[in-house]
Write a protein that binds this DNA or RNA. Structure first.
Lengths: 205, 205, 205, 205
DNA sequence: AATGAATGAGTGTTCATTCAT
DNA sequence: AATGAATGAACACTCATTCAT
């Protein structure tokens, strides 16, 4: 009889906190992984940073590799979306690249490739694959943009995929203390990097 | 190389050890650290790769942090000397940079900054400092070369130190599978990277 | 079956639970425990095998020890009843023993004593006691049957309780791969075991 | 020059204690495994029972599965050798079997098959195989003895391998409290079991 | 000069158990 | 009646480090 009133599912309803806790773990862990890499971040660190117990982290993520994978997918997705959003905006290509550079360089992170090398022995092939795919999506996005710019004569001819990698590699100067310091802000450094990339070293005659 | 650093006391291996075995450990460990990073390389791995026991490694190096420090100092010194040698040679600046790039890119290694971040929690400030100093020597070398080139109008005006960092950062594309593969050799990639750096993106009119 | 054990209070599931779900848990868990032993069967396995959650299992059984106890009591009662039913049937004693043997040997199960030893550190003395009682009921049943057979001269004189244990112990050969295989079926093995027990090794003159 | 005196190997000599510690671990662990099974025996228990640390156990045995395997191989070898020695002695077959039975029944142990089922998920196929081989060696030993006895008309015709398994299965009654107690010693029980096996149930006419 | 032995601290992972809903 | 969330205790395993020889 009660059942006819409102077919409420039995059991404790999934508290909205549930998803909140999970995303909090994801966010915290993402930050830690990007900051310190795979090995250095222990699950107890993640847990404590969230005010939880190790076992609670395991309640949401089956193991460290899974957590790591989801974190990277999240970070890469955000990076991809942000980049896409910025690049689809108005302004000159140079200016939009600068905006992307500033965005990327504003949050420190371990160089991607190093992190993957560190983690790859612990991840399944599938996990590595999914991360690689998400990473490539970002590079393909940039490559396509560069390709179009080349076609339209906006930039000089070159391998657009290589350019995409070089571009992101250049942004890692952000991590060097001699580059970013009291005298040179991140934004300023980004500007100079982009200018370097744009003009090249060749002297103007 | 050791005699050059007078202030270091901890971090310096016990004197009067058979330099034969010691340099072998150094070389082997250097290779392993550059290949896999700090954490991934256990002292037993180093020992076995030398045909020794863990305890023997401890006989020459007081602890892992000391060994790591000595390794990086060695690697950085070699890199510095090689670069200096190449850059002091003849040929155009662009060509000499290409040679340096090819040399660097030919042996895979974990991105330097990532490795330092990984290791830095285990190293003493002094150890970090000595590595940073050696690293900076390399960048100062490049900076000076770039500065002179700017002064002589060989390359466009820019922050030479930043340029030095950007230059080395660009070389890390070597680690990306999409860049180095069957279709593009390391030397070819190096060439394209240098060309990109030289010409920049701006379209020629 | 529960009503028969008045003295047990801990170890007895909360009253007035939907016997539907409860018996399903009991049946499923019994099977799993007999198949894999105490430790190997986690409550989450039991729950999932029933399409429930761990917490639901706890709703019916206060803890793992209680569930295990109830399972064994159930299994032992079934074994007892089946044996009683078979032995009270017609046919020669040897033939009825064969039927029992075939019944027992047809479903694989961990040797009883091993399972008890595994579980006993987690069970209360009371729980161990109740299981032992149920187990003994089975042996007493057999003992009485053997005693009567001895009295009636149907079998040779011997300690009937020991015989009961030897009889059940012999049936555990069922678990050995060298005994039960493609060439020898369970029923055939049972037959040979019973024949061995019946005739003994002594050569006939 | 020193080298010419006595080519002593460098390093600390393998203390005779070394092997002593190792065999002590083996003995202790064997006892514990036979007493409680695979899962129940944690390596910290083993270590403490030897007055060592967990890590020390790992110094001698790479992991729990390896330790377990070596323990079982040891136990099975001892059992095999003891049995062979006893069976090759003089006296009637019945009497020698009794001696074997008494020997086996005097030390309690978990039923072998149960232990293997418990452990097999953690062992490599190779490890399982080597244990199975050692186990089979014992059964083959018995089988051959039984076969010869059959050939010589010393015992009645039957499947000698099945007999071997039945024989060892019968000895597990040792674990039952109703069999071994204040009123019936192990030796006495062994005697009755052997008598049962020898004479069988069939009434003598 | 080199090594066998031993250890402490830490890591990932599992699981029975509790509690509010 | 049933469940989502959270936890503590245990376990297997690794590794840098020490010390007597």
């Amino acid at each position: 009889m009660q059942r006819e009133h409102h077919k409420r599912k039995p059991g404790r309803p999934k508290a909205s906190r549930s998803s909140q806790t999970m995303t909090q773990i994801l966010r915290t862990a993402s930050f830690l992984f990007m900051e310190h890499g795979y090995e250095k971040v222990s699950l107890v660190t993640v847990a404590q940073s969230c005010g939880l117990t190790k076992a609670s982290v395991y309640y949401y993520f089956n193991n460290k590799a899974v957590l790591f994978t989801e974190c990277l997918l999240l970070v890469l997705k955000i990076a991809h979306d942000q980049t896409a959003s910025i690049m689809s905006g108005s302004g000159s290509l140079q200016h939009r690249l600068l905006t992307v550079a500033q965005r990327f360089m504003s949050n420190a992170h371990i160089e991607f490739e190093s992190m993957m090398r560190e983690a790859s022995t612990e991840l399944t092939e599938e996990q590595v694959g999914s991360i690689r795919t998400a990473e490539q999506a970002l590079h393909i996005l940039l490559k396509d943009i560069f390709q179009r710019a080349i076609d339209e004569g906006e930039i000089a001819e070159c391998d657009p995929m290589l350019l995409s990698h070089v571009f992101t590699a250049m942004l890692t100067v952000r991590n060097r203390k001699e580059v970013i310091n009291e005298q040179k802000s991140v934004d300023q450094a980004a500007e100079e990097v982009i200018q370097l990339l744009w003009r090249g070293l060749a002297p103007r005659q």
